[in-house]
């Protein structure tokens, strides 16, 4: 579904990603792990189209998207939940959810879609008309995920969704990822919480200093203490 080959990315003159290659198949949960500064966020940003300078190839559902602007990639079914959540100030929970639909052909279906998503996220359902930034960090993260899911993307990329969130909510969230997978959504997940992530993932790539240094099934990586020790300890 998603294939990244020889991806190189730069921030200005600094060459951050070198020849990244990875693949995500339909229905999989693939995990991207690595130390702080390894290049995980940059990889996701390059895939969604937020970096100015990139080279190589990113194909999604068979189409080359690397030269395309982010909104075109979204229209193909790629969704991205950034690290910092980016809940828009001044908007209610409902408006944030509507924002997830503004570019979707299902916009007419707004009311029904919001009701559906509220069923999946009961915490949001209770707070639809509350200003979104007044919610807790975990609830805001849930909203960011819901906002990205409401347009029913084929592949959703999540950047450290569990960061700074209380454990109950983390469990709830990972349960949700399992459910997304069982309903056919493909997930590319960046996580610091390695054990937890590998537990639900099918495969994983390990990044270090802007390159892929290891690739294995989640089960194999979970058993490989040496790799985990070397590349994933914070």
């Amino acid at each position: 579904m998603l294939r990244v080959e020889n991806l190189n990315s730069w921030y200005g003159a600094s060459h951050v990603l070198q020849d990244i290659g990875l693949e995500v198949n339909k229905g999989e949960i693939v995990c991207l792990i690595g130390r702080n500064g390894a290049g995980k966020t940059t990889t996701l940003k390059s895939i969604i189209g937020l970096l100015d300078k990139t080279s190589g190839s990113v194909t999604f559902k068979g189409k080359e998207v690397l030269g395309q602007p982010a909104h075109v990639r979204f229209a193909l079914g790629l969704a991205y939940v950034p690290e910092e959540r980016r809940i828009v100030q001044g908007l209610t929970v409902r408006e944030n959810l509507r924002l997830g639909l503004v570019a979707s052909p299902d916009k007419k279906d707004e009311v029904r879609r919001i009701a559906q998503i509220a069923e999946i996220f009961p915490r949001l359902a209770e707070r639809l008309d509350q200003e979104a930034v007044t919610m807790s960090g975990g609830e805001q993260q849930m909203l960011a995920i819901a906002r990205a899911m409401i347009a029913k993307p084929d592949l959703i990329m999540l950047d450290e969704p569990s960061e700074g969130i209380m454990p109950v909510l983390v469990d709830e969230m990972f349960e949700l990822f399992r459910r997304m997978k069982s309903e056919g959504t493909t997930v590319l997940l960046v996580e610091q919480n390695v054990e937890l992530a590998l537990d639900i993932a099918d495969r994983a790539y390990v990044l270090d200093q802007g390159s892929v240094v290891h690739h294995a099934t989640a089960a194999a990586l979970l058993a490989n203490d040496e790799i985990k020790e070397r590349y994933c300890s914070v």
């Binding site: 937020l50 982010a70 909104h71 979204f74 950034p82 828009v88 924002l99 916009k107």
Partner: peptide, 24 residues
């Protein structure tokens, strides 16, 4: 309106509006 919502959100955070599919 939806377009108004895009404007209000885009004034705060154009990048998030872009990854939600809007041609900013």
């Amino acid at each position: 309106t939806s377009f108004g919502l895009i404007i209000r959100a885009g004034a705060r955070d154009p990048q998030i509006v872009r990854v939600l599919g809007v041609n900013v």
